[in-house]
């Protein structure tokens, strides 16, 4: 469970988040949606303990979040990091850094993703780097999984593989999974809930199926309404 209590975040002169309060339950896949600059990545970094709120508190599974708590969270960054490693060495490096990293599960996901272990990360295609990042994120037993734009710039085949790996390898009932994404239309069937942000403010938090049941709206349509 992730709780934000009156959270604000200011970077120098830029107000990234303003007085955001919400509770995200475990056992669900939750999407954070909004335009560029709406505060999606900032929200995720706060959950990961990578940055601190200017005001308010972030509580993850009952514990106030800070850098030391980051070990409870598996975080997939939007950025690619090019260590001079092969796929295999990168996996071993992660295993050495995180006590909850399962090499056995990493093997399964590597096989599922058809990644070549001997290749250098630098020489991988963008799609394969996206796949490798999923291996590194999903191989951990962390109760909280955070993914910043895991689908961005990837072709539909890779997106499909990522969605399938998420369902195959995560015991969702025991995790809280939060994804920021632009690829809303394709990803909606994967989501339980959506948190909509606009200019750093929370404009809504909805159950995806309820929204369709009650208002005949998809998340994309709902977002358009909220942004009008």
């Amino acid at each position: 469970m992730i709780e934000f209590k009156n959270v604000s975040k200011r970077y120098w002169k830029h107000q990234a988040l303003t007085d955001v309060t919400f509770t995200l339950p475990s056992g669900k896949i939750i999407g954070i949606v909004g335009e560029n600059g709406s505060g999606k990545s900032t929200t995720l970094k706060l959950m990961a303990g990578l940055i601190r709120p200017t005001k308010g508190t972030v509580i993850v599974n009952g514990v106030p979040m800070d850098r030391r708590m980051a070990k409870a969270v598996s975080y997939l960054s939007e950025l690619d990091v090019y260590y001079p490693f092969t796929v295999e060495e990168t996996i071993q490096f992660y295993a050495s850094q995180f006590a909850d990293f399962s090499l056995e599960r990493a093997d399964e996901i590597v096989a599922f993703m058809k990644l070549d272990r001997k290749k250098r990360v630098k020489s991988l295609s963008k799609g394969s780097r996206g796949r490798l990042k999923m291996v590194l994120t999903l191989a951990r037993e962390a109760p909280v999984i955070l993914m910043d734009e895991p689908f961005s710039g990837l072709d539909p085949m890779v997106r499909d593989a990522i969605v399938k790996s998420l369902i195959s390898f995560l015991d969702i009932e025991h995790r809280t999974i939060v994804i920021t994404t632009h690829e809303l239309k394709e990803i909606e069937p994967l989501l339980d809930m959506a948190v909509a942000l606009k200019e750093g403010e929370l404009i809504g938090i909805r159950d995806v199926e309820e929204l369709r049941d009650d208002e005949n709206l998809s998340i994309v349509d709902w977002m358009k309404q909220q942004y009008e």
């Binding site: 997106r159 969605v163 394709e186 069937p189 995806v208 199926e209 369709r212 005949n216 709206l217 998809s218």
Partner: peptide, 12 residues
């Protein structure tokens, strides 16, 4: 990802 879903009816 299989077939597409219609935008207004619940997915279930």
């Amino acid at each position: 990802m299989g077939e597409e879903f219609n935008a207004s009816k619940p997915i279930y």
